[in-house]
Nucleic acid binder design. Sequence first.
RNA 1: GGCGCGGUGGCAGAGUGGCCAUGCAGAGGACUGCAAAUCCUCGUACCCGGGUUCGAUUCCCGGCCGUGCCUCCA
Length: 461
Amino acid sequence: MTALKLQNSLTRKKEDFKPIDPAHVRLYACGPTVYNFAHIGNARMAVVFDLLADLLRSLYPKVTYVSNITDIDDKIIAAARETGRPCDEITCKYADIYNRDMAALGVKTPDVQPRATTHIPQMIALIETLIAKGHAYEGQGHVLFNVPSFPAYGGLSGRSRDDQIAGARVEVAPYKRDPADFVLWKPSTPEQPGWDSPWGRGRPGWHIECSAMAQEHLGLPFDIHGGGADLKFPHHENEIAQSCCAQGQLKDLSAFAKFWVHNGFVTVNTQKMAKSEGNTRLVHDLLQQYDGETLRLALLSAQYSQPLDWTENLLQQTQKTLERLYQSLRELADITPEKNSDQHDNPILEALCDDLNTPKAIAALGHLARKAAQTRAPFDKAALLAGANLLGVLQQDADAWLGYGQPANDVDAAKIENLLQQRQDARKAKNFARADEIRQELTEMGIAIEDTPSGAVWKKL
RNA sequence: GGCGCGGUGGCAGAGUGGCCAUGCAGAGGACUGCAAAUCCUCGUACCCGGGUUCGAUUCCCGGCCGUGCCUCCA
């Protein structure tokens, strides 16, 4: 069996993946805060870890993939104030949209998709443990994690406590013992969402939810923790601090998660995508114009840890690539796929096992498509389909995807068939001028004709 | 300032100490009444300067350029 290698942010090395328990692999990835439509950066994270979860499933008997939804956060509160809608209405709405958009990209719902607001007791318990062990303290209704109490702090990002405060942009609040300390719990005003706690009515800080939910649904330590590269610091660093300290593990940063995997950022025309730049690309909008598979393949066109530049050109190239793949599938429509007995070494599986090398995998898919087209062998078709499944593409009907037999807007199929018949007659009579005239007529209707040995077929342009 | 990443053909994007990435675009050919689709073939690609080596795009050193994080962010 091919061995999986992953770039581990914690050790900064590409390592062989060895599960803690080969009978049950456990994966966690930080999901979105739901206060707006998902953008293509959110989608990259979702697609990458969906792919990783799938890969693990093909390698191990049981995999649990947990990815959270953050539904309590100051940005959500701000959105509620702006729109005049309650927080839970906003979070339900956008969580729903998120899941629908991701489904369109072929992303399966994670095995567990926990929400922060349904894990408040677990967070409170975790905070109490941290206080009891001397890693956290209360001040003016806040509870803070005391960074100097964890000497190993900063090991993931390679940043020391001093580095963190050197920027001097961390909030220096009067209730902090150390400038680097971060909030575990904060008080809520009566109109803000809040929960009763030993420290009064309040709400959790950002980092504690992931520590609590990962522990609740996976147990500690677990195998792989993922998320966007920007989360490495401070979010993931703080998660490690909380979870390690709560377990009394002051030295071993891998006592929370063994492997840390970070996906790179998406830029738009080489510019950072940010609300402030006004260049966010929403999945919801892109789906109006492109098929979900096109977006998925475009997101996988660069290896996950590399930056990915999102451009119109990328989408068009990707769409063409997909068209060609579907075309080869169409040529093989009459072949019944059949697995070959010695088909263990799937080149796409092999590429993905090399730190999720999706460009290599896509290249391999191209090879398989060509090979299958040449040999028309049942096992070559099976290999192509197996590879495509692994990548989550070519999941649709080829004819439909390519537009064969699909009438264009306000053109009915009967009319097309009629013209096609007339053209056939003209061709039979060697009246090619008339045949070309009909072709032109159909082109203007948005219909293309292709002559095949078994007669003419048409498709939507 | 601290930590990190990257510079590969027209574009996207892998990879390797000596031979092929792949896709898109482009050129030629087969096929076709024409076309489309498909198949075949093709392009003297690896930022600059040193070093190691029989041989470096690939390893080492230096430089130039670009970029991410350090503040909410996928």
